[in-house]
């Protein structure tokens, strides 16, 4: 065997070994392939494409045209979109106060009373409905034409003004509908958290002269942190992209008065065919969501094992 041949064979073996190793790793990676394909198609490529479209002007028919950041400037200057930004902020803050804060308050109340199961069940019922159905139900309940509540109040001689077409209050009414729907889940999560809190530190603090409010603020709240973080993050993530309830109840109206960012996105892209502007709104929604849920995502995505 000549030296050259030896080298070739040796290289061949080296290559083979390399290949065998690669195939071995490859076999295990096969299990990941379906997940990767689906996530690429449905999520990762769309994220890149939407980001790209955010810098374009595109009506779907003609080729996209690069317009720099003018779509983003529109998001923060066009009156309808600024209004949507403001409404989205109302949604975020409103649900934090009512669907989260008030749920915690009621959970604490419930943890000290008998008949807890009955109340818990009552509050949980709306969670079994979809936001679409909740919106349909409440629209009927509040409607000034044969709505349940105005009809009931009329029996007592009270004339109820229409609430959904009143632009000063309709967003808050709809935040109420959302609270009606998600209060139960948050409440149960808080109750789960409260049940796991040992009684000793609370009692010890009370013996040391802490009042109930202090015990709540300085002992219960810190111990509830993991659950709080979960509920708050969930609330933020869901309300920054709020669509279903304001859309089904009043299509973001009257006019565009109660539009949220998600509704603006839908209207600009799929009704007015401004795909670029729609994409820019999507990017803004994403950035807001990322900022709001940064900590939560870090915890979910952390290394294990």
């Amino acid at each position: 065997m000549s030296a050259a041949a030896f080298v070739t064979v040796n290289q061949g073996i080296g290559k083979m070994k390399f290949n065998v190793k690669k195939v071995k790793g490859g076999v295990d990676t096969v299990f990941l392939i379906p997940a990767i394909i689906f996530v690429l198609i449905a999520e990762l490529v769309p994220v890149i494409y939407t980001t790209y479209l955010g810098f374009m002007q595109w009506d779907i028919i003609n080729p996209p045209k690069f317009v720099g950041i003018s779509n983003y400037i529109k998001v923060f200057t066009q009156p309808e979109l600024l209004n949507a930004l403001k409404n989205t902020l109302y949604w975020v803050v409103g649900t934090l106060i009512f669907a989260v804060g008030f749920a915690l308050f009621v959970a604490v109340l419930l943890s000290n009373v008998k008949g807890r199961v009955i109340f818990k069940s009552i509050f949980f019922i709306p969670s079994t409905l979809s936001p679409t159905v909740a919106a349909i139900v409440w629209r009927r309940t509040l409607s000034s034409q044969m709505g349940a509540l105005p009809s009931l109040l009329a029996l007592f001689g009270i004339n109820m003004h229409p609430v959904l077409t009143n632009t000063h209050i309709n967003t808050f009414v709809m935040i109420g509908v959302w609270t009606w729907q998600f209060f139960g889940i948050n409440l149960i999560l808080f109750l789960v958290g409260l049940e796991t809190i040992p009684r000793e530190p609370v009692e010890a603090a009370m013996i040391d002269g802490a009042n109930e409010r202090q015990a709540f603020l300085y002992i219960i709240v810190p111990l509830l942190r993991p659950i709080m973080l979960l509920v708050i993050a969930n609330s933020l993530i869901n309300t920054i992209r709020m669509f279903d309830i304001p859309w089904v109840m009043i299509q973001g109206g009257p006019g565009r008065a109660s539009e949220t960012l998600a509704i603006s996105l839908y209207r600009e892209s799929f009704l007015l065919f401004k795909m670029g502007l729609g994409s820019a709104i999507a990017v803004v929604i994403s950035i807001l969501t990322l900022i709001a849920s940064y900590r939560y995502i870090m915890i979910l995505g952390r290394k294990r094992g």
Partner: peptide, 29 residues
């Protein structure tokens, strides 16, 4: 199993959950 860099693969797939659905709508359409 012996997948190399499992954490990276996990994050690569899990990141899909980080974005709101609005980010996917127009491309999917």
């Amino acid at each position: 199993l012996n997948v190399k860099k499992p954490h990276v693969w996990f994050l690569g797939i899990f990141i899909g959950n980080v974005f709101p659905f609005q980010m996917f709508l127009i491309p999917l359409y």
